[in-house]
Amino acid sequence: MPAQPIHTNRLILIPFTLKITKTLMAGDIGILQKLGLQLTPYWPDQEAIDTFPKIIHNLEKVTEPTGFESYMVVHRNSMSVIGDAGFKGLPNDDGEVDIGYAIITQAQKNGYGLEVAKGLASWAFKQPSVKAITARCLLDNKPSARVLEKLGMQQVSTDVELIRWKMMNPAHEQDTIDC
């Protein structure tokens, strides 16, 4: 079954498809209107544009979006895209998926990052193959670190650039305790 939108209180996470992503990457934002979304001058921003090749790469690995790829973050009231978020592919051999999110500058500091992260985590933990969610953020990205902490993630390592985070699926925590 193809990926379905994820609904949160204020947001709708709409899965990217190859067609949508390639069209946006070509500079044609008119496809957003065809999806019933409002155009704004704020999205896609440069960060989203820089992410499109990675989204395309992940989508080319599957026949249709599975949910473990990327989503447009849509504000439910305005129906405008305020960011993008998702996973960096299917769960690895350890049942881990890596999460990422970006909210446009104009919509930051409103709790949308946490709402997106919670929506993605809730969806992921309902998938039988997901044992843990991982994330990375830059050492100096305090807002992202706060989102990951509020989500319930634990720091597992740091290096000169990044903090690595992990959160176990409550349904699988017993598996790691018994090992």
Results as ranks from 00 to 15, higher is better:
Thr8His: 10
Thr63Lys: 14
Cys137Phe: 01
Phe125Cys: 05
Glu69Leu: 06
Glu96Pro: 00
Arg10Ile: 01
Ile29Gln: 15
Glu60Gln: 13
Glu47Gly: 01
Gly89Leu: 10
Ile56Tyr: 13
His7Ala: 15
Ile49Cys: 12
Lys118Tyr: 05
Asn92Met: 03
Glu47Thr: 13
Ile103Gly: 01
Ile12Pro: 03
Thr40Met: 09
Gln154Pro: 02
Pro15Glu: 10
Gly152Glu: 08
Gln4Leu: 15
Asp93Ile: 03
Ile12Gln: 11
Val156Asp: 06
Val156Gln: 10
Gln38Trp: 02
Lys142Gly: 03
Ala135Glu: 11
Val97Asn: 00
Trp43Cys: 07
Phe52His: 08
Val73Cys: 01
Trp165Tyr: 12
His7Arg: 13
Lys131Asn: 14
Gly30Arg: 06
Asp175Phe: 10
Lys142Arg: 10
Ala102Gln: 03
Trp165Arg: 04
Asp94Thr: 04
Gly111Pro: 04
Pro91His: 00
Gln46Ser: 13
Asn77Leu: 14
Asn77Asp: 14
Ile99His: 01
Phe52Leu: 04
Asn110Tyr: 12
Gly36Trp: 02
Ser122Gln: 12
Ile55Leu: 00
Arg76Ala: 13
His57Thr: 06
Gly95Ser: 02
Gln155Ser: 07
Leu151Trp: 05
Val147His: 07
Leu162His: 13
Asn77Gln: 13
Leu90Trp: 06
Asp178Val: 12
Leu11Glu: 02
Asn9Ile: 02
Glu115Gln: 03
Pro41Val: 11
Gln46Arg: 10
Trp165Leu: 07
Ala171Glu: 13
Ile133Thr: 02
Gly152Pro: 10
Ile133Cys: 03
Pro128Phe: 03
Tyr42Trp: 08
Gly95His: 00
Leu24Trp: 12
Ile49Phe: 06
Glu60Asn: 15
Leu139Asp: 09
Gln46Gly: 05
Thr158Ser: 12
Lys118Pro: 02
Gly113Ile: 02
Leu37Ile: 04
Leu18Ala: 13
Gln154Glu: 11
Leu11Trp: 04
Ala102Met: 03
Glu69Phe: 01
Ile31Phe: 06
Met153Tyr: 07
Asp93Leu: 06
Lys142Ala: 11
Tyr101Thr: 05
Glu96Gln: 14
Lys118Asn: 09
Gln106Glu: 11
Val156Glu: 15
Phe52Cys: 03
Leu18Asn: 12
Leu37Ala: 04
Trp123Asn: 00
Thr176Asn: 08
Ile31Lys: 08
Gly89Asn: 05
Ser157Gly: 14
Pro44Leu: 04
